[in-house]
Amino acid sequence: MTRISMTVDGVRYDDDVEPRTLLVQHLRDRLGKVGTVVGCDTSNCGACTVLLSGRSVKACSILAVQADGADVTTIEGLAGDGGELHPVQAAFHEQHGLQCGFCTPGMIMAAVDLLTENSEPTDAEIREGLEGNLCRCTGYQNIVRAVRAAAESMRTSVPSTPESAEAAEAGSRQGVTT
């Protein structure tokens, strides 16, 4: 057992973990962060994607001990404190970028990272950027649309009310820092 400490969605956790425990197992089984899901055992599907210190990572491809000291954001912590959706979440809803929703947590986290890297991606760049995340329901058509729309709204959003300013800030705090 190894003692590790990490902050997940703004809450600090200290745990003893087996060295072989994957980050995604730790999140789901120990911390109850079941919003992050497991879709494969070969690190191909991306369903488990979370942000590790702001950058996306497949939580099944690293060990919990490797995330010692890290700041982890999962789909559960992406919305603002008052529940305001992150622009990427809002766009997935608005553009019907999900059906069964199983790929969605990972897809959204990967998209957040993609937009951090490239705030004005072309459709081709979005498709390439999300290559590591599989979806069986949508044919990706509306996922691409959603990411494009999110990019647009993140570029043009001018906080107009205290509430939305907070939301935007929360979004950038939790999702878009590098």
Binding site: G35, I75, L85, Q89, F92, H93, G101, P105
Partner: peptide
Amino acid sequence: DARLITGRT
């Protein structure tokens, strides 16, 4: 969508 995009599934 509300639950699916926020991980409350």
